[in-house]
Write a protein that binds this DNA or RNA. Sequence first.
DNA 1: TTGAAAGCGGTACCAG
DNA 2: CTGGTACCGCTTTCAA
Lengths: 350, 350
Amino acid sequence: MNRKATALDVAKKAGVSRSAVSLVLNGRGDGNVAKESQDRIRQAAEELNYSPNAIALSLRNQRSRVIGILSDEVVVSPFDGNIIGGADDVARARGFVTVVMDTERDTARDASAIETLLDRQVDGLMYVTVGLKPIEVPHGMLRVPSVLANCYDEHPQPQLRHVIPDEITGGREATEHLLELGHQDIALLAGLEDSPAAPLRVQGYRDAHAAAGLPVLEDRIFMAGWDIDAGFRGAMKVLDGVSPADRPTAIMCANDRLAVGVILAAARLGLRVPEDLSIMGYDDETRIADTMVPSLTTMALPLREIGRAAMTTLLDAIEGTGEPRQETPIETMVPCRLVVRESTGPVPTR
Amino acid sequence: MNRKATALDVAKKAGVSRSAVSLVLNGRGDGNVAKESQDRIRQAAEELNYSPNAIALSLRNQRSRVIGILSDEVVVSPFDGNIIGGADDVARARGFVTVVMDTERDTARDASAIETLLDRQVDGLMYVTVGLKPIEVPHGMLRVPSVLANCYDEHPQPQLRHVIPDEITGGREATEHLLELGHQDIALLAGLEDSPAAPLRVQGYRDAHAAAGLPVLEDRIFMAGWDIDAGFRGAMKVLDGVSPADRPTAIMCANDRLAVGVILAAARLGLRVPEDLSIMGYDDETRIADTMVPSLTTMALPLREIGRAAMTTLLDAIEGTGEPRQETPIETMVPCRLVVRESTGPVPTR
DNA sequence: TTGAAAGCGGTACCAG
DNA sequence: CTGGTACCGCTTTCAA
C-alpha cells in the first residue's frame, strides 16, 4: 500500500524540474526540453510506474473526463442495462469514463446524487431510466452539458436533448408483421397507462390497421399490465372457451413477459404456437425472447443504440467542435428492430 | 452555468478568513472562532449556497468518501443488481457514496477501471459479479481496502474477504421442502458446470437425500443449462412419454428460468402444477418467480444482504474502529431463503 | 480569537 | 531550453 509516485519523484530521479516532466509527458516536450532530458524523464516515469493524479488534474483543469450517469433503477432492475453499456462504449472510445449512480427510483435522491457528481467535476451528466418516461429534470443538470436517455422533459420548453425509442413505429411495424402473415384479427395486450410507451405502441397498432384499410376492433385491445400473470389472464380472457372462429389468430403483446404469459395460456389450452395462434412480443429481452419455447418474434428495443446516441450527443456538446453543431435536435428517435423467431406464423386456414 | 461559491467567497462575505470558514463549517468553531463570527459565516454560506469542492477535499485529505464498485456485468445483465442496491444502502447510511463501473465481462478492462477509480482516490473497492464465481483479483485492489461480493479469490492464500450465498444449504433446504411434501422421486435440472453454484446446489440436494436416508438416483440429475429452453428440454426428457409411475413427482431447478421451461413443458403435456408435478425454482428473480403462472416456489438468493454485508465489512475495514476487529473472517456466507408459492404441493397419491 | 502560510499533485506562464 | 512560481480549493498548523 505504498504511495504512488508523483511528478516530483520523477523530476528528481531524472534530475530535472517538475515543469519539464509535465511538458514531456504531455507531448509538448519537443522544442521545449532537450532530447536527452526527455529520454531520462520518460524512463524515470516508466520505472516509477508514474501516472498523474487524476484528482489533482481535475482540480487544476476544472474538468475530469468523467461522465456521470444517473439512473432511476437501471442498475438494480433487470431491464435496460444495455443503454448504459452503449453509452459507456462511446465514452471510452472517446477517452472518457462513466460512473453510475442509481437512486432506486427515489427521485428525492436525484438532487443530492447530482450534487455529488457535480462536486466531483464530472464534465457531463446523463439521466437514464428503465422504460420510456417523462421526468422532472433535476436542477443541477443544467449546470453542465447533459442529456436524457430513454426519458424526456415534458415541460413546454425542454432544456435538454433526449434520445428515445420510436415506439409508434415499433408498434406499427410489429402489427404489420402480423398483417403480412395474413392475420386480420389481432388482439393487443397493451401494458398499462403507467408508461407512455403503452399508448404509443397502441397508436402504432392503430396506424398499421388504418394503413391496411382494416378496422380496429376496440374490444380486442386490453390494458393488461406488464407481467407474465397479466399476459396469462389476458390470453385466457380472449381464448378460453371461445370458438376457433371467434378467436383472434394472433396476439400482440406490449412486452415479452406478457408474451410468456400468453404462451403459457396457449399451452394450457392446447393451442399450438404459431400454428393455431401467433404471438408477438416486444423488447427482445435477453435470454427470454431468444430462449422461450417457442422463441419469441419480437420488436427489439434499440437499447445500446440509445445509449450510444445519447452519449455521442453529450460528448459533442462537451467537446464543442469548431462549428457550433447546433444541428442535433432536442429529440432523437431511434427505430426499433423486428426480430422474427418462432412464435409467429401464417394465419391458420379455417 | 456560473461558478460555484468557494470558501474564500464565504470568508469575504462574512468578513473573516478562509480558515475561520473551514473551522466553523466543520463543527470545530467553538473555542476557536467568536460566536458572532460563526453566525455570520454560517449565514454567508447559506446565502451563497456554499458546499465544499469535493475534488479539493480529496486532494487535501487523501480520501474521498467514495467507494468504487467494479462489476463484471451486473449493470448490463438482468441479474443480481440488488447486490449493488444493498451495498449502496449501507454506504449511504454511513456517509459514503458509491460509483459503479461495469466492464461487461471484459476482464482485460479490470485493471484500467481500477486504476481509474484509484486515481480518483476511492477509499475502497468492491468487486461484484453476476452469479457466484472465482475471479482473478486485479492487482490494484490490494492497494486500498477491498472486498468481493458474490465472487471469491480461489488462490491458496486469498488476500481479500468475500461474501457469498450459502449455496449448499440453499440446495439442501430446497430439496427438504420437497421431501417434506412427501416427494421421494425428485429430478434435478442442475444448471451447468460453468458456474460453481451448480455443483454446490447439487451437493445440497445430495445432502438432503442423505439426511433423509434416501438414495440419490443419479440418472435423475441433469446438467441442463440455465435458460428456459434448457428447462423445457430437460423436462420433456424426464416427462414426455413416461408413465406416471415412472415419472418424478417433483422437479427441482437450479434457477427460475429453468423452472419456467419446465412449467411450459408440463402445460404442453397436460400435467397440472402442482397437482401432478411440483416444480421448484431457485433465485427468486423479481417479476418472474412471483408473476409466473403458477407462481414459483423458489430459493431466494440473498442479494441485498450480500451487498450489505460486503459493504459493511469494507467500511469497517476503512474506518478501522478502535479495536482491530480482525474478527471478520475471510469468507462470509449468507443463507438463502425459501419462498413458498404455488408451484409446489403434496406428492400426488397414486 | 484570528489570519497567514504551507501543502495536497499538477499545469502553465515567465523570467533567466 | 530550463527551473521557479502562481494557482486550483481546502484544511491545518502556527504565530500574532
